[in-house]
Design a protein around this nucleic acid. Structure first.
Lengths: 194, 194, 194, 194
DNA sequence: TATGAATGAGTCTTCATTCAT
DNA sequence: AATGAATGAAGACTCATTCAT
């Protein structure tokens, strides 16, 4: 019942992640992963039972990595507006990135798998982001760097716009200019009345 | 090569539409459609070559139907705000509807199939909606029913929020209250400064 | 929903029967049958879903064939004793036949698949045989060709002895002499007191 | 190549026996045994090469155990009829026991594996039983407790009936009443003419 | 036009068996 | 002696697609 090789497990997850980034979720087969990892069919089953299980694990890792990354870049003495700008710049990157992202795979997965509330990473990620953003907006309002009457509503609104762009970038395509304009729109609304 | 039966073609498309609404795009097989239509395998191939072709045709029909519906309900002597409210109410319905919608199928399809710009119905639909909405906002601003400095930017923003909610409703789930709040948020921003 | 090709269905069943006679039930795979029939994998699934389904169908056919055969050979004006002898000779053939029989496959199947009473062909076959045999013994007793106090008990006893020999022939092996002795033993008991 | 652990060997055999009693022979995999014994895959192979080898060993142990049991219960000063009754009662128990018996596994095994005469435990067991039974019948006849013209033939006949019932109990099912009737039938034949 | 039997490629999944430690 | 990770063969099953009728 040992954890088998933790390294191999990580290797599989890392390899699978890239496949999911390329092909989304539904088109990925156990064989794809086996081939990419250059291990045996049975070998993969030793670690994971299904692409679903693998994907959920990939997502989990990804979520914590992202948290860490963000945290790592914030602990500066930057202004609220700076942090906001940084956050939106990161989001822009994700929106415009076609292949380095699990976006498509994630959507495909959650479209097809209704996950129980508690396990729903996508929901959890969204709500966490809303909370952080709302706190930021509140702090900004208090420090009079920006103006926001309804921090939570605004935070949700912003996250939905970003969500909309993420999806749009994979369905109808989205230009950098388009994204920039929307980010500018968001920022303008927040600082216009200051 | 002849004209085949137009009726049968319509029947297939109508039947397939419901399957796509239920199962999304990727999980639908030619067999599913054959079975649902109660026609022969070969028969289906006489009309369509793939689920992809069928789905695109379903989308095309759907797009024109939707346009007609909207037009039909607007040509009243309603105020700009009324039209806006009506539009948002329709969007709300679509957002909250889990199974009467091609949303999931559409996303799945466009995630996997990069369609040439000109054929991209989703883009066309989005842009048309933006245009109509922007015109509305402009008209509303001029009539001083509402206030909007940047009609196109705002229209895009609104459409993205709605897009975000459509997706969210299928991934993390979205309550009616959540949607109402966001619609209120949008309307408030438009009328607050009037 | 047509019955596909009835001929092909029969061909598959006939071919499968021989495989079951050779290999029993559990070792027979769908692939075995596909290969023997020289049809495609998918082709077989068009007719049958599993070896279980095929085997049950083979058994059903076999049962009716056997009934017919027996009936065909009895409608003579033979004496009770003659019929009895004929019946036992047939049974002897079956007992000694190692490969032209579904015995092993049947046992393997019913060991593993508890079938509902009504569908249990083996039970049905046994009980039918008991009935026929009991009638025979009764008739024989009445005509004073033989003596049997308890026709049903005796019929069951005889059938069990034959069943025992059928099994034994496939487990420990059984010589012709052994079978002859037992048949003689049975007959002797029936006629000894006459 | 050394002596390995005799205890572990016994433990494996004992554990495997219960699996065979539950699942018969063919469905038991080396993995089943490994899991049940909570030893390592390689560990099992150190002691046994296959389920076949394990099963034969289980049977061997079982045979000697049974002999011992029987002997232990007979060395009383009971009458021949009592011993007979006891023997048949034991057989009845085995016939009606669905899961505490190696019957099914044994049949499955010998159906599929033609074992050389000398090694054929099932044959050996049968013949031993016949011998013991025949001696009993002879003794009984001499003491005039019962009547039996052909002790060996009768012994074989009885053993075959019992064999038939053992099989039948696993294929078509057999009620206690059915078994009792047959046992009574046997006894009646032996004592009726005394 | 329309049918539906037939094909065969492609996945999934499980195990017996090996082998480095 | 003992472990258990790793392999690869084997079997089940499903569909897209073709083709003779």
């Amino acid at each position: 019942m040992g954890e088998k090789s933790v390294q191999k497990r990580q290797f599989i997850l890392e390899t699978a992640k890239h496949i999911f980034m390329e092909k989304g979720f539904k088109d990925v087969t156990m064989k794809d992963i086996v081939d990419a990892c250059e291990i045996s069919r049975g070998g993969l089953y030793l670690y994971f039972e299904s692409t679903k299980e693998i994907f959920l694990e990939v997502l989990r890792l990804e979520a914590s990595d992202t948290d860490d990354d963000f945290a790592a870049n914030i602990k500066e003495d930057s202004s609220i507006t700076d942090i906001l700008r940084f956050f939106l710049k990161e989001q822009k990157k994700e929106i415009l990135s076609q292949t380095n992202t699990l976006t498509v795979a994630t959507y495909e997965f959650f479209f097809a798998n209704k996950v129980s509330k508690k396990e729903n990473i996508i929901k959890h990620t969204f709500e966490t982001a809303v909370k952080v953003l709302a706190d930021l907006l509140l702090a900004g309002t208090e420090s009079e760097e920006l103006y926001c009457e309804n921090p939570v509503g605004t935070a949700r609104n912003i996250m939905l716009v970003l969500e909309g762009m993420k999806v749009a970038s994979h369905t109808m395509g989205v230009s950098e200019k388009f994204v920039d304009e929307q980010i500018l729109y968001i920022m303008t609304n927040l600082v216009q009345n200051v």
